[in-house]
Design a protein around this nucleic acid. Structure first.
Length: 864
RNA sequence: GGGAGUUUAGCUCAGCUGGGAGAGCAUCUGCCUUACAAGCAGGCGGUCGUAGGUUCGAGCCCUACAAUUCCCACCA
């Protein structure tokens, strides 16, 4: 018997989870008798512990997996973690620094060991946290982007793409982070508005015929200028194009060139061109065959090209010195404050330096074609659909992907250079002999791969690719990818084109996009604001189930949500309600032999709740299948709270208290419906539903609610009449309660009530109990409640005939208004013609019924 | 500069192919009714951002405007 005082999740959640794990309920395998359903967990970065955003993302997935598992699919949720190369390296370097060490001091091998300790520590920690939140991933299949299987896939993919000519090495203008000492990709640069200065500098003509003025935010790059450009259509400067300028602070001369990149109306309409340190200037430089002079090195210091006085100087220092010298020489026109956007490294926030470096790239143009096509032809559906626009925009404008990084954390690029002839060999392991010169010594490329390279392979590397495994064959393409809109373009797109390239198919058939979790004021959660919420803290205090509800309830697809403790509170209140309902069910069914539905003579209330239940099952199923998990949860909560707890349990009480067969029947239906409630709630709040399920008596119970069959709709077509009658009784109860409140009769007072109508005793008993009134056989003086199941006169001596007549007239007016509304609609020929037939019919019915009611009321008014 | 959202009750948000405006929280009133005071019952509260348009009918479709959030591009 289930009779524990109150809901204390701390007391059972851990044990329930242990039970599930011991029973291996999460493990999903190739089963030809079942249909596959598969979600690959987006691997959290091992940079820190799990945050509330993970909790949301994973809860979505857990709901889907638990639902599909109950529906009889072989439902695999494959977990894993990501090494997050640059991000982790930043943390590792900081950790070493705090110990007074640098990575160069300890060397690459020791650094690798440090990295693995870190991976293991945070990887374990995150997964432990996920278990506390109840996530039903198949932990035995846990993968890590740096593990052997994943590394194998990375090497294989790299070599295949290299051999196809899709990976190449090139010298490009790239974003350099002087702090990470690595190139970073376009995606890893974040721009922010910064207050800086605009320096207006005089560039004298070489022939001494005066000067021009150029404006710049980076005067220290002047040493790398190889031209000044104007717009070819700019009439002001037509005559000077081709003239030579004397570059200040140097002995060099540079030409004035014309290029349409320059906007005439910006500044002076003249731009200094520094091809080695500005992406746009780089393009201009290529078009005009300009010299590329590097003046800033990878440490962020000026090079020899900047001249003796500046060599080795930090950028800021150099900037001040340039300003000082220009001023001395009378070449500084003016300096004015200027706000502009500056790129920063996503990880360490250092201002990035555009710089020409040699890197590895993936050729994108052809690679992305199938990824675009698959969304167009519906092979991959993005939910909600509007995110397709972002997806297409991204892929249509994609640039070659820079995949090399000058750091140590990550997969080493599988390229070997012959020490003798510099021959380049792509190979998974150190080659033994050069195929060109026969030399036997090689040096591996020192760079590692962008962390996204391995995550791009995630949906199939986790399933065993490049090997042809059974898992891959059965579960690939996977069913759905669940992720936030913030990494749709950065990550999801990469998996799709690599999926086609490597595994020949889309990696997932659906992509579910959700929003971000914000704080209760709508701000992003961040460390600097200190407004982050630790999901574990919440779950330990209020239960994982309450947290799960608080996260996804009322959450519309693709929309941001605000998290607040008041949501957790109301979620817990709901769970507590279910807890108490189970106590009620258990209290009454414990010593009763439960019957199956086929062996029960159903009462109206039973047919009513079964109809509601069946409708709810249909709605929930549809909504989860549409991936609208938030709405599905609202559906089931409404049913459990309103229909089941508020009404059905109360409607059952008269039958239960009367005992005998009536009690046995009622308790059996009650148990059946509650059984269904637990099953419907299981995907959302697995702990408490399991705990109750284990401890309560039910007809034909499975060993766990999480592996029981998800409820299917019930055949209820023949219940329609009973259902309507019960609906009308409920409506009447509400009206009577309402009237009692109007009359200031306390809810615990039972006013004498006289009834005129055709209801049977069962119905009247329900009304007497739920509206808390006392039926009398002699007509009383009082307020009349007009309902669809008859009139109820509630004794009230304070009302005289006049007031009663006024009440009645008010009711008559209301009905008249309804009648005029309906007849107006129905007398509009265009409404009758164009509106759906059902709607017209129901409007006609309403009109007829209201007309009947009106004539009854008028009769009553006359008789008063 | 280009694009996408959002705007509905005091707060947080639902609202399906257009067919009588919803929930939770908050607030107010009455209740310790044998599942539940972490509760029950009832109430208050909305020209659905503004202005036009389409339609028999608009929170929903179209146009413009306003406020706000985000994404992309990166301005010398």
């Amino acid at each position: 018997m289930f009779n524990e005082k109150s809901y204390q999740p701390q007391e059972f959640e851990k044990n329930i989870y242990k039970f599930w794990e011991e029973k291996k309920y999460f493990s999903a395998n190739v089963d030809k008798n079942k249909k596959p359903f598969c979600i690959i967990m987006p691997p959290p970065n091992v940079t820190s512990q799990a945050h509330i955003g993970h909790a949301l993302d994973m809860t979505y997935q857990d709901v889907l997996v638990r639902f599909k598992r109950m529906q009889g699919y072989s439902a695999l949720w494959l977990p894993g973690a990501d090494h997050a190369a640059i991000a982790t390296e930043t943390k590792l370097v900081a950790k070493l620094k705090s110990e007074g060490k640098t990575k160069e001091q300890i060397g690459r091998a020791a650094f690798d060991k440090e990295a693995w300790d870190w991976y293991n520590y945070y990887g374990n920690r995150i997964m432990t946290q996920f278990k506390e939140l109840g996530f039903s991933a198949d932990w035995d299949k846990y993968r890590f982007t740096m593990d052997k299987q994943s590394t194998d896939a990375v090497l294989e993919a790299f070599i295949r793409l290299y051999n196809k000519g899709l990976i190449y090495r090139g010298t490009r203008q790239t974003h350099w982070c002087v702090s990470c000492k690595s190139v970073i990709s376009d995606d890893e640069v974040v721009y922010s508005e910064e207050q800086g200065n605009m320096w207006h500098i005089k560039y004298p003509f070489a022939d001494g015929s005066g000067h021009i003025i150029v404006a710049t935010t980076r005067p220290e790059t002047l040493f790398g200028d190889t031209a000044v450009a104007v717009n070819p259509k700019d009439k002001r400067y037509k005559n000077i194009v081709g003239k030579m300028l004397k570059l200040p602070l140097t002995n060099r001369q540079i030409p004035i060139i014309a290029d349409s990149y320059v906007e005439s109306d910006f500044g002076t309409g003249m731009v200094k061109i520094t091809p080695a340190h500005d992406p746009n200037d780089y393009e201009v430089g290529k078009r005009h065959n300009l010299e590329f002079i590097s003046v800033i090195d990878k440490e962020g210091k000026l090079t020899a090209n900047a001249g003796k006085d500046f060599i080795g100087m930090q950028i800021k220092e150099a900037r001040a010195k340039v300003e000082e010298l220009l001023k001395e020489q009378g070449l500084l026109e003016k300096v004015e404050p200027y706000k502009h956007s500056v790129g920063h490294c996503e990880r360490c926030k250092t201002a990035i330096e555009p710089m020409i470096t040699e890197q590895w790239f993936v050729k994108m143009k052809d690679l992305v074609k199938p990824a675009i096509e698959v969304v167009k032809n519906g092979g991959l559906k993005i939910h909600p659909k509007r995110f397709e626009k972002n997806y297409f925009h991204w892929l249509n404008n994609i640039q070659d992907w820079c995949i090399s990084r000058q750091i140590w954390t990550g997969h080493r690029i599988p390229i070997y250079y012959c020490d003798n002839c510099k021959n380049v060999i792509a190979s998974k392991a150190m080659p033994t002999k050069c195929d060109k010169c026969g030399h036997t010594h090689f040096t591996q490329d020192s760079d590692v791969l962008d962390t996204w390279f391995s995550s791009a392979l995630w949906p199939f590397s986790t399933l065993g690719w490049p090997n042809k495994t059974e898992l891959l064959d059965y579960f690939y393409p996977t069913s759905v990818l669940v992720t936030g809109y913030d990494i749709l373009t950065q990550w999801a797109t990469k998996m799709v084109y690599m999926g086609f390239e490597c595994a020949g198919q889309t990696p997932f058939k659906n992509c579910l996009i959700h929003g971000l979790v914000r704080d209760e004021f709508g701000r992003k959660m961040s460390k600097s604001l200190g407004n982050g919420i630790d999901p574990l803290e919440v779950s330990e205090k209020y239960g994982a189930d309450a947290l799960r509800i608080a996260l996804i309830k009322d959450m519309a697809l693709g929309m941001d949500s605000r998290f607040s403790m008041s949501k957790v509170d109301s979620a817990r209140a709901f769970i507590n309600k279910i807890w108490n309902a189970s106590k009620f069910v258990s209290l009454h069914n414990n010593d009763i032999e439960l019957l199956s539905l086929d062996n029960i003579r159903l009462e109206n209330k039973d047919k009513w709740i079964l109809t509601k239940l069946s409708d709810t099952i249909k709605t929930i199923t549809t909504n989860i299948e549409k991936f609208d998990v938030g709405l599905a949860l609202t559906n089931v909560m409404n049913f459990a709270l309103n229909d089941f707890c508020d009404w059905y349990i109360e409607l059952c009480k008269p039958s239960i208290y009367s005992g005998g067969v009536s009690k046995q029947n009622t308790v059996s239906v009650l148990s059946f419906v509650f059984d269904n409630v637990l099953k419907l709630l299981q995907p959302f709040i697995p702990f408490v539903t399991e705990y109750i399920y284990q401890n309560i008596k039910l007809f034909d119970k499975a060993s766990s609610v999480m592996i029981s069959a998800f409820p299917a709709p019930i055949k209820v077509t023949s219940y329609k009449e009973a259902y309507m009658l019960q609906e009308n009784i409920i409506e009447a109860i509400k009206q009577i309660r309402n009237t009692k409140a109007d009359l200031s009769i306390a809810s615990n007072q039972k006013p004498q009530t006289y009834y005129e109508g055709q209801l049977d005793n069962a119905g009247l008993n329900q009304i007497q109990k739920l509206a808390n009134i006392e039926f009398v056989t002699e007509k009383v003086h009082g307020n009349i409640v007009y309902t669809k199941v008859g009139d109820f006169i509630i004794a009230d001596q304070s009302k005289d005939i006049k007031e009663l007549k006024a009440d009645l007239s008010k009711e008559i007016e209301r009905i008249k208004f309804e009648i005029s509304r309906s007849s107006n609609m129905l007398s509009n020929p265009r409404f009758v013609e164009k509106a759906p037939k059902q709607l017209v019919e129901s409007e006609k019915e309403k009109l007829l019924e209201n007309q009947r009611t009106l004539s009854n009321l008028l009769k009553k008014l006359n008789s008063l």
